[in-house]
């Protein structure tokens, strides 16, 4: 038996008082009187608490009344299943894709070059290297030298370049991050460590004009405004431009081809939030 259920237990064993129902009815009947007395007589903190509770109750009540009223109203207008006109053959189809079917009317506005870099977040806080990187001092030799760095910010979890190619063509300190399908070389060859726990592959992308948010896979990091090296490392900070895969939204170009990648800008401090929120650049 849980604690505090002594009344229930007593009732189970002995039954209810013979006048239980009657007393309950009377108490309910006097409820209004009790409430009005409380409203008038209570003072101080109790009055405040009481009024707060009463206000919340009234709001609920009014809402309920309104919904009841709406149910009874008979409108003469035929209720249109959707705000935008659609042809007869699409009328009874579920508009499940509605939220996703971002209108392709709003698109390709960024064709002109001038508009290309007018982004929602034009300025971001600078992040110094000592905030971005933690010096790793483990082991006998690395402790002495201290050249190894761990990135303290979220990063994108995929390589853009073939790992072998990147080893061949880039000096080790500028090498793009490796993909997660890549067998790592010995740790001592890597100068930058991107912790697995801070890697992201998906972003919650909002379409600014339709106010729809969809989770989409990230394709690449296009530009980190802090430092070109961060772009190469795939660091995701507030203001970073990323390319997201919008193919499932079904956007098409004027020529009738499917739009695949589309740029978006990160709007939150992802290292604090544990998720990536971005806004689509249209």
């Amino acid at each position: 038996m849980p604690q505090n259920e002594y009344v229930e237990r007593w009732q189970k064993q002995n039954g209810k008082r013979y006048d239980y129902e009657e007393r309950k009815r009377k108490r309910l009947a006097r409820e209004g009187h009790k409430q009005s007395q409380d409203a008038q007589k209570l003072t101080g903190l109790r009055a405040k608490l009481y009024q707060k509770k009463r206000r919340a109750e009234k709001i609920q009540m009014k809402k309920q009344i309104r919904t009841h009223e709406q149910r009874n109203v008979k409108s003469s207008e035929p209720n249109q299943p959707s705000a935008t006109p659609i042809p007869q053959y699409l009328l009874d189809r579920s508009q499940a894709s509605h939220a996703k079917a971002l209108s392709s009317a709003i698109k390709n506005k960024r064709a002109e070059k001038a508009a290309k870099f007018s982004v929602p977040l034009p300025k971001v806080r600078g992040i110094a290297e000592d905030e971005m990187f933690k010096v790793v001092k483990t082991g006998k030799k690395t402790a002495k030298k201290g050249w190894k760095r761990m990135i303290t910010k979220p990063t994108f979890g995929r390589s853009l370049v073939d790992p072998m190619l990147s080893i061949l063509h880039f000096p080790s300190n500028l090498r793009p991050p490796v993909g997660n399908d890549f067998t790592r070389r010995p740790v001592k060859y890597e100068r930058f460590i991107r912790p697995m726990g801070l890697r992201y592959k998906k972003a919650n992308v909002t379409h600014p004009e339709l106010g729809v948010t969809v989770q989409l896979p990230i394709i690449s990091v296009k530009k980190n405004p802090q430092n070109p090296m961060y772009t190469q490392l795939g660091v995701l900070t507030k203001g970073t431009i990323i390319e997201v895969n919008v193919s499932e939204l079904g956007l098409v170009t004027a020529g009738g081809k499917i739009v695949w990648g589309r740029w978006a800008q990160i709007t939150n401090n992802c290292e604090n939030d544990g998720c990536i929120n971005a806004v689509l650049l249209v």
């Binding site: 392709s104 098409v252 004027a254 020529g255 009738g256 081809k257 499917i258």
Partner: peptide, 13 residues
């Protein structure tokens, strides 16, 4: 003349 067909689509073409 039944030799050609035109189709309209959601892909704007």
């Amino acid at each position: 003349d039944s030799r050609l067909l035109v189709s309209s689509s959601k892909d704007t073409t």
